[in-house]
Simulated assay, not measured.
Amino acid sequence: MFRDNGPDEGGFDSGTGTAHQDAVWPYYLTWGISMPFAYWSILIAALLPLIIIGYAKAGSRDNSAPRDSAENLSGAKRRAYAAHQNAFESFPFYAVSVVAALNFGASATTVSVLAALYLAFRIAHALLYIADKSSLRSAAYAGGLFANIAIFLSPALKINFF
């Protein structure tokens, strides 16, 4: 399915579907399941918008029309709502990029590192959006986009950091 450092190099063995005891960083975050961190990062990226909206809607008592209540948000909570929407907008390309890269032969370690970088940029983007730091927010957005493009292109360009 995908390639990475084999058992002799301390990585993921796609033949047996296991991470080896001496595996490097991305495999320590698999919680005992033989799945690279890059796949787990899809779950984290999917949950990120829900965490952001939790902040935006904290203290709101109107749950009968939750989408309509967004119009009443202001300041940081309104910006959090916008960050929530942006996180949903960026998710499909990210999820497809990770799955495609790993299925077309990209190094699972490289994709996992790029995935962690993407998540860091997306979290920074949300925090900077809420804090109303527009220039830094745009830089974080661009960083996340470039990390995502690198993930997508990693099998074609043979990007391998490790």
Rank of each mutant, 00 (worst) to 15 (best):
N63F: 15
H84G: 12
A70T: 08
A46H: 08
K57V: 06
I42W: 04
I151T: 07
A140M: 06
W40G: 01
S135C: 09
A106Y: 07
R79H: 02
A56C: 04
Y81T: 04
D22C: 04
K57L: 11
F12H: 04
K133Y: 01
A76M: 11
S138I: 10
N63S: 11
E89W: 06
A108H: 11
S134R: 14
V98C: 03
R79W: 01
H84E: 14
M35Y: 08
A56G: 04
R3S: 07
E89Y: 08
S107R: 03
L50G: 15
S135N: 14
L145S: 10
I149G: 05
N103M: 13
P7Q: 05
Y129G: 09
A108T: 14
I149P: 08
S90D: 08
A126R: 02
S138T: 14
A46G: 12
G10R: 01
F93M: 13
F104G: 00
F146W: 08
G59Q: 06
Y28Q: 14
F2L: 07
Y141N: 01
A147T: 13
D13M: 08
Y81G: 12
N72D: 15
M35H: 10
F88R: 06
W25P: 02
L73M: 15
S60I: 14
L47N: 13
S64L: 15
G54I: 04
N86Q: 03
F2Q: 04
L114K: 05
P26K: 02
N86W: 00
F93A: 15
L43R: 03
L102P: 00
D62Q: 09
D8R: 10
S135T: 15
A65R: 12
I53G: 08
G32I: 08
A116V: 15
G59C: 11
A58Q: 13
F104M: 13
H125R: 08
V113M: 09
Q21R: 06
S154V: 09
L127M: 09
G10D: 02
P26D: 02
F93V: 15
I159Y: 13
K77E: 14
Y129P: 00
D22S: 06
Y39T: 08
A140R: 02
R61V: 11
W25G: 01
F152L: 15
A58Y: 14
I42G: 02
S74A: 09
L43G: 12
L73T: 07
Y118W: 15
A150C: 14
A124E: 03
A150I: 14
F104Y: 12
S90N: 11
I151H: 05
A38S: 07
